[in-house]
Design a binder for these strands. Structure first.
Lengths: 191, 191
DNA sequence: GTTAAATTTGACATGAGTGTCAATCATGCG
DNA sequence: CGCATGATTGACACTCATGTCAAATTTAAC
């Protein structure tokens, strides 16, 4: 196995993710990726074949990070705290450096329409939904809706959040809206 | 006032809107706009100065159309019917030719960050919110939340809808989720 | 009909970005 | 040690898009 990869793949993927996250899939060029990472364009083509494969490799780390954060946020035993915390985490996540949400950016990006990318996005959303179902199931009796439906509503709200954040730039208002939704979902008295 | 505009501005704006709507602001070039409309690139620069002004002119028609549809959808006297109809309209609107939502595309588009564009987006969302408040206010007693908060939740849900539509391509599921939200918002027994 | 204002047109110079490829270089393995 | 394997590098040939401008053209108004 001679002729070994010279660049640090960890570093490359971290740099590529930062770039994709900030600018989106379509708006990020191989040229930029090369500059941002210090790896020559030719090497990137040689190693990954093109932008899409590199994107998917970088996106995998994004997925993992977000899902991990969601798990942590959902851990508290009190359901209201857990759900409110999930939204707080999401809001903080996208507002770091005002970078927004890569999943949403990619979902909206018409040029990111390859089957592999679409599959990754679907995967991410269904993972999120699954975590919610898992968290909600034991507390089903506290909910005003069937577990699956409640999870769907929460997932959709996280996406709406991301869009409204871009338009309004008002995290307190986002959190208040999220908490109102949580209040509606739970049977006990509302806030 | 000699040397009068040769092209039909109505037609141009309609063509430009179609292009922007499909591909988004950043991904649409002046070149494409010229080809799609049959108006020379130079004429477009002369008439509008650049892409941003042309976009805003085209977006105005988009705004009007959507708001008009929302008004029609919200007209029915039964609140549940009105809100469910609003979501049905929104889902149908974005699914026509699978074109998605131009407001959301633009909100997510990092290259569409000029103050004028951002202001137009904010305007559109606050117009939607205002229509909702207007419709909800007389029926405030039927709601589980304060009018403003309920309107916010509905607005955010329309944005989430748009994103989920791109990922799941499942309008029935979107409508079911929307109806579940409406059920939560209304005090009477749920579906 | 002439004039003058404004639009249209095609060309120009420039800058990004693309994907490929042959030559060069590094290194693990026999 | 040498070599084959595979990575790196820089260049090449393209395509697309940009914004500007002078020349040509159109037409309302006098």
């Amino acid at each position: 196995m001679a002729g070994v990869r010279q660049f640090d793949e960890e570093r490359l993927l971290a740099d590529a993710l930062a770039q994709f996250w900030r600018k989106g899939f379509a708006a990020t060029s191989m040229q930029e990726l090369a500059q941002a990472s210090g790896v020559q364009r030719g090497s990137l083509y040689n190693a990954y074949g093109g932008k899409e494969a590199l994107f998917i490799a970088a996106y995998r780390r994004y997925q993992a990070r977000y899902i991990e954060g969601v798990q942590r946020a959902l851990a508290p035993p009190d359901l209201r705290v857990a759900l409110s915390g999930l939204f707080a985490f999401s809001i903080g996540y996208i507002r770091t450096d005002r970078r927004g949400c890569l999943t949403t950016k990619t979902a909206i990006d018409e040029e990111a329409g390859s089957p592999a990318i679409r599959a990754a996005l679907r995967q991410q959303m269904s993972d999120l939904q699954a975590l919610l179902v898992e968290r909600l199931a034991p507390a089903a009796s506290e909910l005003r809706l069937p577990v699956e439906m409640a999870a769907d509503l929460i997932v959709t709200h996280t996406r709406g959040l991301v869009v409204m954040e871009r338009i309004q730039d008002d995290p307190a208002r986002l959190q208040a809206g999220a908490d109102a939704l949580v209040g509606l979902l739970l049977k006990e008295a509302q806030v």
